[in-house]
Design a protein around this nucleic acid. Structure first.
Lengths: 137, 137
DNA sequence: ATGCAACTTCAAGTCAACTTGAGGTCAAGC
DNA sequence: GCTTGACCTCAAGTTGACTTGAAGTTGCAT
């Protein structure tokens, strides 16, 4: 019931080179080897899904690595978790705002969007950055 | 009523080097020069806010550039706008899911999160990628 | 008119996140 | 037993998004 790197690659959509890179960086680990070949457990797939998601959310690999405990579970640092959660939620809200800006742009017939009040309103929401956001470099 | 690069930098939070870089890449443009110095219009600030937001949402500068028309308005390609809007909304939903995963991790007392049903549920939502998402390299 | 802070250009450097390539190993099917 | 394909390592290359540095210019206050 263990997976070859090729299987993991196919199932996760990530190329083997990336998987090796992630292992090198300590984000994942193989459960052992058969000869030279890495063997992975099923659970790697969930972990990779979380990593990919974290990347899409704008976290660096280093940040993501810090969210896992050495044993592979998610970090138990509750405060940190809640902070990240807030940050993500705020980002999500802003994204919805931009999404609204785009929908408006597609629909609105006003000569210039910059003068349209509803456009203005969306952009205003989108402009607000949270404090934690600012910290992110 | 025009701004110096320093003013824009202070008001947008972006360093002058980044502003010059963005200009070089065609994401923004100065309205003219006083001697050597670039002059910017007020409206640059809104535009920069949108650019920054786009970056946070994971778009490349090139993608962002393609969302603006040469005249500086948002692209009128309605189909493209709606596609991006969907993409953003989907990403936003997934982010909320990760946020939930994190909150759960902070709150749940189960010995292993991987066995907790509500954790599973959140991860399941988070795992789903949209088609458009997959295209994003 | 003189100093100097804030601008300018342009080339080169940096960093994260991968990818690519050369050269080697191994197990399975013909 | 030998080829083939999927794996391996390790070093070097790539890309995007900036930043830094050197060397020059300019506008405003003293």
């Amino acid at each position: 019931m263990t997976l070859d790197i090729g299987d993991v690659s196919r199932r996760s959509g990530l190329p083997p080179s990336t998987l090796r890179y992630y292992e090198e960086k300590g984000l994942i680990s193989s459960t052992g080897r058969r000869g030279l070949r890495r063997l992975f457990d099923q659970s790697i797939l969930q972990r990779l899904a979380l990593i990919t998601l974290g990347r899409e959310a704008g976290f660096s690999l280093e940040e993501i690595a810090s969210m896992f405990t050495p044993t592979g579970k998610l970090s138990i640092d509750r405060k940190k978790c809640l902070e990240k959660a807030d940050e993500l939620e705020h980002l999500a809200k802003r994204l919805v705002s931009v999404s609204n800006v785009l929908r408006h742009t597609a629909a609105c017939r006003a000569p210039s969007h910059l003068e349209c009040p509803s456009f203005q309103r969306y952009v205003k929401v989108a402009e607000k950055k949270s404090h934690s956001m600012a910290k992110r470099k």
